[in-house]
Design a protein around this nucleic acid. Structure first.
Lengths: 146, 146
DNA sequence: CCCCAAATTATAATCACTTCAAATTAAAAC
DNA sequence: GTTTTAATTTGAAGTGATTATAATTTGGGG
């Protein structure tokens, strides 16, 4: 089942309307699932087929999906939110220079807060963010001694 | 040596001017070091004694300190940047409901990316963010079966 | 086909920050 | 102490991402 089909079903299940705009947003999410698109990027893709879609609609739909837990918001302090169709636990590696973002699908077994360090919180999730400099940026900066 | 003294010294060491504005910003950082203040919060504190300081100056000074590696920017996807005078490696625990932020000073030994997972990046830092619901918010939501 | 709550839209607003250019000032040089 | 000057400060205007508003349109049940 494609992502589009899945999301359409979930929308219907919850009595939400399935508009053409939403269908194309679902398709864009599927198409760009590999690189954590921003709302602007989704808008751009959707407008290739539906030129009058508004940014508000994109945000509205993405937020709906997040609420339905079918989409994950990823905020790495870049000044904008990225959206990730992979809602499984995974981590991120971010290039400080160019903003390139890579998924890390490895688990870190130790990352767990024992009750005495949890300050009474109910912990619902955790995320590891690695920061560094990607190959391209090392190249550009002449950091690679070839 | 107080934080103010330390920062004044470091400024002088680098040939930077020590203005009254900067001194009061250093004091505010010291006073609020426990709760990761935002630029706005620093501004508010500084204005209690120096009512005409501008937000631009606060940002300018904070960014200077970050550049000098005497201050750490913490961005947890809340839509604004917090500043942390503790530049040691440590992690964070964030309440999703009220935004309360707690430092975690425990190390996680396993959190390391082996070269085959590093995608060629030079990794310079990592950060673990735990999310959950704090005691106060559990209380408010009646989640505590007392 | 009709209805109407839900969805979409354009426009304007907001929020956190950044840029800019003119006025001020710390501190080095005299 | 006075002068000099480059760094700093300032408020106003600008940005870019996101959100609010209110009028218009529409999916889909009846």
């Amino acid at each position: 089942m494609s992502l589009e089909e899945k999301l359409v079903r979930e929308m219907r299940k919850r009595g939400k309307k399935v508009t053409p705009q939403r269908r194309f947003i679902f398709q864009a999410l599927e198409k760009e699932s590999d690189h954590h698109p921003t709302a602007e990027e989704i808008l751009h893709t959707v407008r290739q087929t539906l030129p009058d879609v508004s940014l508000t609609t994109v945000y509205n739909t993405l937020h709906n999906l997040v609420e339905m837990e079918l989409l994950r918001e990823v905020d790495l302090g870049e000044g904008m939110t990225r959206f990730d169709t992979n809602t499984d636990i995974h981590h991120h590696l971010l290039c400080k220079r160019c903003g390139k973002l890579v998924d890390i699908h490895r688990q870190f077994r130790n990352v767990f807060l024992p009750p005495e360090d949890a300050h009474g919180f109910i912990i619902t999730s955790h995320q590891v963010i690695f920061e560094g400099i990607c190959l391209d940026c090392q190249m550009k900066a002449g950091m690679l001694k070839q």
